[in-house]
């Protein structure tokens, strides 16, 4: 009898110990998020002012802003999304619609998942070999291509997943009134999956807006205002990288402010993306 109760007590103790550890683990995860966001707000807000958005990156030891870097990031992100989204959506369409059960789809899905988590610096090296070396110079165009390659797998994945969620009865209804396949896809499947596909695009923007590694040796950096796509262009992440590692206090401050801007952008994008799909799940 006494051994039974001691066994029971031991099991209960182990249970509460392990559950406490799990609670602690969750606490650590949340605390870390709070610590990082707190530090960013504290350090970043100190330097946040209008001049950050209106002035160019300064020479060492001077005051200035991040205008050319923000502009460069926006330009390259927009081009990357314009180039990458159609390819991603079309590839996802093939996998979910035309080739749902084909061998090609299985292979593409596997390769796409690997591309999704492949180190982004490798993509930078690829675009360097593909564009920068033959052209002989760094350019914003090369940077955009590198980012577009990062957009594609995210969009492919979400497009395929979301199209697979569209009930087949909808497609059959479209086919039954005589619509050809591509009209069914365009007017039925895309419309039903629209919020999901938009989510994928938003997530891909969130992903590339903070990417630094693939830009280091494609778009390089630029201390000055440049809107020439065939020349090196500044970007927010690369500027942060350069400024944070510099010994100048003004530069380090700008790096923190830039980091805050990027983080808020990324968090806002992921929250909007999540609320789009969240609404779907609730229905």
């Amino acid at each position: 009898m006494s051994t039974a109760t001691s066994l029971h007590r031991r099991r209960k103790t182990t249970n509460s110990l392990m559950m406490t550890l799990c609670l602690v683990a969750a606490g650590i995860g949340l605390a870390w998020l709070a610590l990082i966001l707190g530090a960013l707000l504290y350090k970043g807000l100190a330097g946040l002012s209008v001049s950050v958005f209106t002035e160019m990156t300064p020479p060492p030891g001077d005051a200035g802003g991040l205008l050319n870097a923000i502009y460069g990031s926006v330009v390259m992100t927009v081009i990357a999304v314009i180039v990458g989204t159609p390819i991603g959506v079309l590839a996802g369409t093939y996998m979910a619609e035309y080739g749902r059960f084909s061998r090609l789809t299985t292979i593409v899905r596997f390769i796409n998942d690997i591309l999704l988590s492949a180190p982004s610096i490798i993509i930078g090296l690829f675009v360097y070999e593909l564009l920068v070396r033959p052209m002989g110079h760094f350019s914003a165009l090369a940077g955009s291509v590198a980012l577009a390659i990062l957009v594609i797998p995210v969009v492919v994945r979400t497009t395929e997943d979301m199209l697979n969620l569209v009930p087949n009865a909808l497609r059959e209804a479209g086919t039954a009134i005589g619509a050809p396949r591509w009209v069914v896809i365009k007017s039925v499947a895309y419309r039903a999956a629209l919020s999901g596909i938009v989510t994928g695009i938003l997530l891909s923007i969130a992903r590339i807006s903070g990417e630094t590694a693939p830009l280091l040796f494609t778009a390089l950096n630029n201390q000055f205002w440049s809107s020439n796509l065939n020349a090196p262009m500044a970007s927010l992440p690369v500027t942060i990288f350069q400024f944070a590692l510099s010994p100048y206090e003004e530069w380090q401050q700008l790096a923190w402010t830039g980091a805050l801007i990027i983080t808020l952008t990324v968090l806002a994008l992921s929250i909007v993306a999540r609320s789009l799909t969240g609404r779907r799940e609730d229905k």
Binding site: L33, A244, Q252, R274
Partner: peptide, 22 residues
């Protein structure tokens, strides 16, 4: 809480870098 943990995944790596260094 699930979303908060996943937000950790969304923070760009350069942010972890600057936070890590300073």
């Amino acid at each position: 809480i699930g979303i908060a943990v996943e937000l950790l995944a969304g923070i760009p790596s350069i942010i972890y870098g600057i936070w890590g260094l300073f």
